[in-house]
Simulated scan of single mutants.
Amino acid sequence: MKQTFYILTFLLLTSCGQSKSNQTSTTVSDTIVATNNVVRTDTVGLKETFNEEDLPVNEFLTIRLKPIRANFKRINSITNWTSIDTKELSESTEGGEAKFYYQKGQLKKIVTRHYGETFQLLTEYYLLNGQLSFVFEKRHKYNRPLYYDTTAMKENNDTEAFNIDKSEIIEDRSYFENGKLLHQINNQDCGSPFADEYLLEEQKRIITYFDKLIGQKKKK
C-alpha cells in the first residue's frame, strides 16, 4: 500500500459493541477561527501518554509482554529529556510533526502527529535496547470535517455539523519482540487475538513507517 494512503487505512476499522470514544482524554485548543461569522475550533489535540501503565486486557502472552509494558511505563514517565528534536511531516492534508526523544544520546521514543480534515492521528514509538518495542496509535475520528459547520449541514440536508463530542477515539497497541509483532490490541475488537496473517501485514506497515522516520532523522 502506498505510504501516502497509510493514514487513511486506520479509519476503516469497525466497532465491536459500544463506542470506546471516551477512553482517551483530549484537549481542545484555545485557538479558534472565525469563518463566515461562524466560530469553530481549529485544532483538537490528543494527549501524549504520560506516567501511565499498560494494563493487560486478558492473560494472553502476559509473561512475554511484561518487559515491553515495563519499558513503556518507564519511558513515558521520563520528565527530563536530554534533547527533543522536532521535524515537520507533510503526509496528511493538514500537515504534522515528529518528535525524537533522546536520553543521554540514545533515542528512546518517537512521537508523530498527523492532522487531517476528518481525523487526527497520534503515534508513539517506544524503543528497548535500540529496537522497536511498543507502538501506541491513537486516532481521533471526527464525526464531520472540521470546516463542516451548521451552514454546510443545512446545505447538504445533513443532521450533524462538526461536534468534537460526537467524535470517536480508536486505539491500537502493538507489541514487538526482536523485531517481530508479537501481539496487537484494538479498543474495539473485544480483546480477541488477531490472525497471524493480519499481524504480518501490520508488522510490515508499522516497521516500514518507523524505518522511514529513522531515515528522515539521519538525513538531517
Rank of each mutant, 00 (worst) to 15 (best):
N76C: 10
E52I: 01
Y126Q: 09
L61C: 06
E52V: 01
F100P: 01
T79N: 10
D54R: 06
I7N: 07
L181A: 07
S21R: 14
S29C: 04
K180M: 09
N80V: 05
K73H: 08
Y175T: 00
Y126N: 14
N157C: 05
E94N: 05
L89I: 11
I170K: 01
T4S: 10
F210S: 00
G95F: 12
R144I: 05
N80Q: 04
Y101H: 11
F50I: 02
S174E: 08
G215Y: 02
Y198K: 14
N71D: 13
Q23V: 15
I170A: 04
Q184C: 01
E52A: 12
L132Y: 14
S92E: 00
G116E: 12
I214M: 03
L146I: 03
E59D: 12
N156Q: 11
E155R: 13
K217D: 06
Q18D: 15
K73C: 02
E48W: 01
N143G: 10
Y125L: 03
S25E: 15
A70Q: 15
Q184T: 08
S174G: 05
L146D: 00
Y209Q: 04
L132G: 14
E137S: 05
T86I: 13
L200A: 05
T31C: 13
Q203N: 09
I7R: 08
S133P: 03
K166V: 00
N163A: 07
I63E: 12
V39H: 06
N58L: 02
Q188L: 05
L146R: 01
Q188K: 12
K219G: 00
M1E: 13
D54K: 10
I214P: 00
V57P: 07
L61A: 08
K219N: 10
L122H: 10
Q106M: 07
K154A: 10
I206H: 01
